[in-house]
Simulated assay, not measured.
Amino acid sequence: MTTVFDLILRRLVQGHPEQLLLLLFGGQTPAFIRMADSSLPQSERRADTVLVVEAHGVRFAVDIEIQAQADPQFAVRLLDYTVRIHRREKLPVLPVAIYLTPEAEGTPPPYGFACPGIRVLTFDFQVVRLWEVDYLQPALQAASALIPLSVLESRAGPERIAWAESRIRQASSLSTEERLDLLVVLGTLASRRFGQERLSQHLRDIMIDSPFWEEQRELVRARVAVQERVQVLHTFARARGIPLPADAEERLAQLGAASLKDLVTQAVTAPDTAAAELRAVLAQQGH
Rank of each mutant, 00 (worst) to 15 (best):
F5G: 10
D6A: 10
D6N: 11
L7M: 09
R10F: 12
R10I: 07
R11E: 15
H16K: 04
P17I: 01
P17K: 00
Q19M: 10
L24D: 02
L24N: 05
F25V: 14
Q28S: 13
A31N: 12
F32V: 03
F32Q: 04
I33D: 07
A36K: 12
S38K: 15
S38H: 13
R45K: 12
A47H: 03
A55P: 14
A55Q: 14
R59Y: 09
A61R: 00
V62L: 04
D63N: 10
Q67K: 14
Q69C: 15
Q73T: 13
F74A: 06
A75T: 00
L79G: 13
L79M: 13
L79R: 15
Y81S: 05
I85D: 01
R87F: 06
R88P: 08
K90C: 09
K90R: 13
L91T: 01
L94D: 02
P95D: 05
V96Y: 03
V96W: 01
A97T: 02
I98A: 00
E103I: 13
A104V: 07
A104W: 01
P109T: 00
P110C: 10
Y111L: 08
F113C: 05
G117P: 00
V120N: 10
L121H: 10
L121G: 09
F123M: 12
Q126N: 14
V127S: 10
L130P: 06
W131A: 00
E132D: 15
L136Y: 13
Q137S: 03
Q137C: 04
A139K: 14
S144H: 07
A145D: 01
A145H: 03
P148F: 04
S150G: 11
S150N: 08
R155M: 00
A156N: 04
E165D: 03
S166Y: 08
R169M: 06
A171F: 06
A171Q: 06
S173N: 15
L174Y: 00
L174Q: 01
L174C: 02
S175N: 09
E178I: 01
L182C: 08
V185L: 15
L186T: 01
A190I: 01
F194R: 00
G195V: 04
Q196C: 15
E197M: 11
L199W: 03
S200Q: 01
R204C: 03
M207K: 02
M207S: 11
I208H: 09
D209R: 13
P211A: 09
P211Y: 11
F212D: 00
W213K: 05
E215Y: 10
R217W: 01
E218M: 14
L219W: 14
R221L: 05
R223Q: 12
E228M: 14
R229C: 03
V230S: 02
Q231I: 10
R240D: 08
P243Q: 02
A246W: 08
A246Y: 07
A246S: 12
D247N: 08
A248D: 03
A248C: 10
E250F: 11
L252W: 04
L252E: 02
A253C: 05
S259C: 13
S259P: 10
L263N: 00
A267F: 05
V268N: 14
T269G: 11
A270G: 06
D272Q: 07
D272C: 05
A274F: 02
A276E: 15
R279F: 08
V281D: 05
V281P: 09
L282M: 06
Q285D: 07
Q285F: 07
